[in-house]
Structures are given as C-alpha cells and as structure tokens.
C-alpha cells in the first residue's frame, strides 16, 4: 500500500515537472499562469508578520479562475518556497485573506472591489491580468507579448504591500511602473 502511494507521488512529481515547463501561451495559458505564479514566489520577500508561525505554509489564493486554481494545486504538490510548504487556496470575493501571501485575481474588475481595496494594505502579492490592473492595485500583471505570456510590475503596489521584489524578476518585466 505504501509502495503504491510512493509510486503515485512519484508519478505526480514527474507530471508536475512536465507541467511547469514553459510553453507557448496558445497551448494552455492557464497552465503557464499557474507555473509563473509558483515561480514568482522565489523572487519575492515577505515580512515575517505575513506568516502566523515560522512553519506556516505559503498560501497562494486564486479567485475567479478555477482552471488556474486547479492547475496551481497540481503544480504545488511537493514544492516549497522560502523553506515553507506552498499551498493553493480557492477563494471567493469576501473570503478572509488571513494566511494568504499571494493572490491571483482572474477578473480584473474585482480589483476595485472594497474587499480587495482592503487587501492592498496587507502583505499580499496581488497578481492580475492586463496592463490596466496595475493601476487598480495589482503588483504584477500578466500581459501577452508576441504570443507569449509576460508580466509587468508596479513598484508602488509592492511597496504599499510591504513586500520586496528581486531585481532579477523586475529585469524580466515588460514594464515596471511606479519607479521612485
């Protein structure tokens, strides 16, 4: 029985590794989004108060995009970031953001909701789609360039959330707004 579980886990790992591979957007933009969401974690530093305990997992919330949420859950199996286990959490507007360090907002309109306006003051990395979402308070925004998924960054949003983003990540951004 244990052997069967181990085999299944191994299979899942292999499948996950395959899924993480960067792929052209046309094949499956949501898989790429899920992979990028996980990879962003390595380039972002949270303050200690963002976590309840030193052992608390790093949680990526997903709202308004079930495909990404599903994919992300798959990607995160067995993975860690900053020495913490990582987990995906499906959210609906109005859900508490306690214990959530990153949030993907599938519908940019939600950004202006009071629920998320409040979230802007918390140490949460907010990722959304489209250039305009940066103005609405997102720190990172997926954009489409040459049929590839790229991203823009808002230093203002990052700053307001009390986060720090690696310059290496910023170097890959299409556009960085709010530079001091």
């Amino acid at each position: 029985m244990q052997r069967l579980i181990a085999t299944l886990l191994l299979a899942a790992l292999v499948l996950g590794a395959v899924a993480v591979r960067a792929q052209p957007l046309s094949g499956g933009a949501d898989e790429v989004r899920a992979a990028y969401l996980y990879r962003f974690l390595a380039y972002v530093d949270w303050p200690d108060q963002a976590f309840a305990t030193p052992e608390a997992p790093l949680v990526i919330g997903v709202v308004a995009n079930d495909a990404v949420a599903t994919e992300l859950s798959r990607v995160l199996i067995g993975r860690t970031a900053h020495g913490r286990p990582v987990a995906a959490r499906r959210l609906v507007p109005g859900d508490s953001l306690d214990g959530v360090q990153a949030l993907y907002v599938g519908d940019a309109a939600l950004l202006r909701s009071a629920w998320l306006q409040r979230a802007r003051e918390r140490p949460v990395l907010i990722v959304a789609d489209g250039v305009a979402s940066l103005d609405a308070g997102a720190a990172l925004a997926f954009v489409r360039v040459d049929d590839r998924l790229r991203f823009d960054a808002s230093l203002r949003a990052v700053e307001r959330a009390g986060l720090r983003v690696s310059s290496r990540l910023l170097a890959l951004a299409q556009r960085v707004v709010g530079a001091p």
């Binding site: 960067a22 990879r39 390595a42 991203f151 990540l169 890959l172």
Partner: peptide, 14 residues
C-alpha cells in the same frame, strides 16, 4: 544564476 529567472519565465531575450 543570472539566467535562471529568464529560463523560468521563458524569457529568451533576457
């Protein structure tokens, strides 16, 4: 080290 991010985010140009 320097290209890890570029590879991770599929950024051939970088």
């Amino acid at each position: 080290k320097s290209t890890a991010a570029a590879v991770a985010f599929d950024d051939v140009r970088a």
